[in-house]
Write a protein that binds this DNA or RNA. Structure first.
Ligand code: ZN
Ligand code: ZN
Ligand code: ZN
Ligand code: ZN
Lengths: 164, 164
DNA sequence: TTTTGTTATGTTATAATATAACGTTATTTT
DNA sequence: AAAATAACGTTATATTATAACATAACAAAA
């Protein structure tokens, strides 16, 4: 799960506590209730797994974890749950490495920028409406209307850069 | 192949003529010569196929075309050629739909923004160093050094919007 | 110009990611 | 309760990409 903290030094950011995860799941439940959608046991379980992960996770990793938990599961099991969570803005998908991560701010629909460290895998969701708005303006100059922006910046996080 | 024209109304832009493709291949050859790299028959053939395509193409589509041309080819054949072309900046890969397209300006290494129409598939490479520089500045605030920027904007091109 | 090392390609197999199709179960609506 | 809808189980398969190892082409050295 991406940190919900405000500071930029993510190196000092603690991993999501079980309390934070529970909080996030509660949020998700409220959100689904308001939209008259079913936050089923499967969807909750998959979201919990994505939240608990320190880094964005692959679909088949989630599948393994579902199976380890005792549940009968096949690829469609996890992909259907992920599709639901993506549609509701509860998770994001990273196209550059086919992984999924919990959204840092699921309350409001938004486009986001992702900073993906290619060394340690640490990934940070950055909300910069300014950038997205600027992209939208530029696209308009080309007579293009953006529906979805995928902005994934791969590189080195500070911690990895400092340790070579 | 993305247009090399300056106007923004891509709807009026003609498809790459065989002359334009030949020109592009010549450029690529010069570029490889200068770098002391082998612009082999296979690499040239794959680049030609990517150039001729009206839209970004998938690896297995290229594989089919290679086979149709009479050449013996397997997945590694096309992926190795694509890897070379990607490394040399002659083609780009779109992570959001796993396709490849010729670079509009291979002379200079650059990051680019792609406008991908989800209706007709038309894809335009836009060079906006301003945006990329701004992304780099924002990333720095998070102690992050960008090595590769993937900026893929999916939506509706003007032509498709006007025809519903 | 043979030898030798290096780079590129051929070939087979397999990994990794994702979806189609159809039957069953659970939930909601009538 | 019955019917309709939505979610899930299950099997099979599609799509995208790479591992591993053999052969061929090329370049540098002897
Ligand atoms: Zn988000
Ligand atoms: Zn890192
Ligand atoms: Zn380019
Ligand atoms: Zn279009």
């Amino acid at each position: 799960m991406t940190e919900h903290c405000s500071h930029s030094d993510h190196a000092s950011c603690t991993l999501p506590s079980s309390e934070q995860v529970a909080n996030f799941l509660d949020q998700a439940e409220v959100l689904c209730d308001r939209r008259n959608l079913r936050f089923t046991k499967l969807r909750k379980q998959v979201l919990a797994l994505v939240c608990k992960a320190e880094q964005p996770v692959g679909a088949y990793h989630l599948l393994d974890e579902l199976r380890e938990s005792g549940r009968s599961a096949a690829p469609p099991t996890v992909y259907r749950a992920l599709d639901f969570l993506l549609e509701q803005g509860l998770v994001h998908r990273l196209a550059t490495n086919n992984t999924y991560l919990a959204c840092a701010h699921p309350q409001h629909p938004h486009a986001a920028v992702f900073l993906v460290c290619s060394v340690c895998g640490h990934t940070q969701e950055v909300h910069t409406e300014g950038i997205i708005a600027e992209l939208r303006r530029r696209a308009e100059q080309f007579d293009f209307a953006i529906k979805h922006a995928s902005v994934e910046l791969t590189g080195w996080c500070g911690r990895c850069r400092r340790s070579q």
